[in-house]
Amino acid sequence: MRHIGMSVALAAIILPATASAQSVFDGRWRVDLGSTELPKKPWVVTLNDRNFRCASCGTPWGIPADGGFHKVAGQNYFDEAAVKRIDPRTIEFHYRKGGRLVETDRISISADGKTFTSVDTDHATPNGELAVYRSTARRSADGAPGAHPLDGSWVTTSYDKGSDNTMTVTMRMEGDRFSFADGTGSHYTATLGGPPVKVEGDLAGRMIAAKRLSPNALQLDASIGGKADSRMIVTVAPDGKKMNVEATNVKQAVTTRFVAYKQ
């Protein structure tokens, strides 16, 4: 399940690294999902006739699996969740924050129970347009005997599709101020070496602090509520056409790598 993770990564990774008249970062970039190197840490869940629990989430959580919304504590991007059984191999997760539906994840499990496809829809983008992501996963450990087919451990194998508003970003530099905007309406402007700034439109109030590592590389540290959340290392190739991104979830100590190309 995405849990808004990919959109957050895209909204936090890209800022120009220099203050030249025309930075190599300026313009429109598109993420290449085929280049993604995903962490091997499994998603570990329990699902039976009564309850759902995510044991591997950064802050573990669980609710009754009765189709209704229930309060969830300790999560940045939702405070209520519901687990709905669509058919024996299809499950939907619905998330709300402040009473507003923010995300729906629909998981379809294969007949042999070894793989699943998840279609995740972000309902709370700043510009009001739906943002859709699709991922696949394979089973890494069996669930309990007699439990739901989702029960057990899963490793994400790919992000194989995303709506266009999730895959492209636009950047601009003005003096020592650097601006970012994505297709969902999320945006921010930061100064390299300056204080953290708010990502406008982020539901959790995410803050970004940018630091230059070299003429073509940045370190971007994200925090939520004053606590470190993620770290991004962004490096532009010498030809200015390719950007390598290394994104680390600080709480879970896992890293994802991918590439973006200038359009």
Score class of each variant (00 low, 15 high):
Ala131Ser: 12
Arg177Ala: 09
Thr168Asp: 10
Arg89Lys: 13
Gly146Glu: 06
Asp142Cys: 08
Ser118His: 07
Thr90Phe: 15
Ile109Leu: 07
His123Ala: 01
Gly143Ala: 04
Val169Tyr: 02
Leu150Met: 11
Gly98Leu: 07
Arg100Asp: 11
Ala137Trp: 01
Thr90Met: 13
Leu101Ala: 07
Arg138Tyr: 08
Ser158Asn: 07
Asp160Glu: 13
Thr157Leu: 04
Ser110Arg: 00
Val132Pro: 01
Tyr133Pro: 03
Arg106His: 02
Thr115Ile: 11
Ile107Asn: 00
Gly113Asp: 02
Val102Tyr: 04
Arg172Asn: 08
Asp176Thr: 06
Ile86Asn: 02
Gly98Phe: 10
Tyr159His: 12
Asp142Arg: 14
Arg138His: 15
Asp176Phe: 03
Thr166Asp: 00
Val102Ala: 10
Pro88Asp: 01
Gly128Glu: 04
Tyr95Asn: 00
Gly99Ile: 10
Thr166Met: 15
Arg106Glu: 02
Pro88Ser: 01
Leu101Glu: 06
Ser163Gly: 14
Asp176Arg: 09
Glu103Asn: 10
Thr121Val: 10
Ser108Phe: 06
Ala144Asn: 08
Met171Lys: 13
Ala137His: 03
Pro145Met: 05
Asp105Tyr: 00
Asp122Ile: 04
Asn165Pro: 11
Thr115Asp: 13
Arg177His: 08
Asp112Ser: 03
Ser140Thr: 11
Val102Ile: 07
